[in-house]
C-alpha cells in the first residue's frame, strides 16, 4: 500500500499530467461541465413539479412510485442504452444524467413541501395569504432542508455517473480512470478514482455550506435545542406539536 501511495503521489507530481487536453485541470472542467447542465435542468423540472404535487397533495403516490422505480435502474445500463440508440456524444450523457438527477430532487421537494406542518399552512391561509404566497413564503422555505438534501444526492449521483460516462466514449475524470484500465496502469486508475472522490466530496461540502447559508436557523433543530438549553433553562411546558422526524430524502447512489 505504501508503494502504491508513493506511485500515486508521483503521478500527481508529474507535470505532464497537469497540462493539455488530458491534464487534470481540463478533465475536471469537462467533468463539471457534464455535471452542471443536467443538475440545473433537473432543478428546473423537478422542483416546480414536486412543489405543485406537495402543495396540492394530489399525485404523491406517483412521485414516490417513480422515484422508487428509478432507484432500481442500473445507471450503467441506462447510459449504455441511450448511447446505443443516440450515438456517442454529450446529448445522451446529459439525458442519462438528467434522468438520474430528477428523482431525488423530485422526492425531496415533494416530501419537503408535503411535510410542512398542516397547522402552519392553515395559519398562513387563515391570515390571508394567497396560495402562491403560501407556497413561496411558507412551504418552500420550510422545505429547503429536504430540497437541498435532494440536490446533494442528485449532485453526488451525477458526478459519480459522469465518471462512468467515459466508458461510452466521452471524457471527464472518468477518462483518466478508463485509460488506466485499458493499459492495466493501476496507479493512473487510483489517481483518477481519487480525483473523482475529491470532486464529489468538495461538491457535497459546497452544497452543505449553501444549506447552512440559506436555510432559516429556525429550522435547524440541533442549533435551536442547543440555544434553547442555554437561553431558556426552565421550560415547564411541552411544545404542543411533536416535530415530525424529517423523512430521508431519496437515497440513491452510483
Amino acid at each position: 500500500m505504501g508503494a502504491l501511495l508513493a506511485d500515486v503521489a508521483a503521478w500527481f507530481g508529474d507535470s505532464a499530467n497537469w497540462t493539455g487536453a488530458a491534464g487534470v485541470p481540463n478533465r475536471v472542467l469537462e467533468h463539471l461541465q457534464y455535471s452542471i447542465v443536467p443538475i440545473l435542468l433537473a432543478l428546473l423540472i423537478a422542483v416546480p413539479i414536486g412543489a405543485a404535487v406537495g402543495h396540492s397533495g394530489r399525485g404523491g403516490f406517483l412521485v414516490v412510485g417513480v422515484a422508487n422505480g428509478m432507484r432500481s435502474l442500473p445507471e450503467l445500463g441506462v447510459l449504455t442504452i441511450l448511447v446505443t440508440f443516440m450515438s456517442v456524444g454529450l446529448l445522451p450523457v446529459t439525458i442519462a444524467l438528467l434522468i438520474l438527477a430528477i428523482p431525488p430532487l423530485l422526492a425531496g421537494t415533494y416530501a419537503g413541501v408535503s411535510n410542512v406542518d398542516r397547522a402552519v399552512v392553515d395559519a398562513a391561509r387563515g391570515m390571508g395569504m394567497t396560495e402562491p404566497e403560501i407556497l413561496t413564503k411558507v412551504e418552500l422555505p420550510n422545505a429547503l432542508p429536504l430540497i437541498i438534501g435532494g440536490l446533494r444526492t442528485a449532485t453526488l449521483q451525477v458526478i459519480a455517473t459522469a465518471a462512468i460516462a467515459a466508458f461510452v466514449g466521452v471524457d471527464g475524470l472518468g477518462r483518466i480512470l478508463f485509460s488506466g484500465l485499458a493499459v492495466r496502469d493501476y496507479t493512473r486508475m487510483a489517481a483518477g478514482a481519487l480525483l473523482i472522490a475529491v470532486l464529489a466530496l468538495l461538491a457535497d461540502a459546497a452544497l452543505a455550506a449553501l444549506q447552512r447559508l440559506i436555510v432559516s436557523p429556525g429550522l435547524r433543530t440541533s442549533t435551536s435545542s442547543r440555544r434553547r438549553a442555554v437561553v431558556a433553562p426552565a421550560q415547564p411546558e411541552q411544545l404542543p406539536q411533536s416535530r415530525s422526524t424529517t423523512p430521508e430524502p431519496e437515497l440513491a447512489r452510483s
Binding site: D117, A119, V120, V121, D122, A123, A124, R125, G126, M127, G128, V138, P141, N142, L144, V215, S216, G218, L219, P240, Q241
Partner: peptide, 17 residues
C-alpha cells in the same frame, strides 16, 4: 382573512421566521 385575526390550537407559527 387579512382583516380577521386567527389563532389555532397548535399555534401554527412559521418555524422558519
Amino acid at each position: 382573512r387579512r382583516g380577521i385575526g386567527y389563532v389555532i390550537q397548535q399555534s401554527g407559527l412559521f418555524p422558519h421566521r
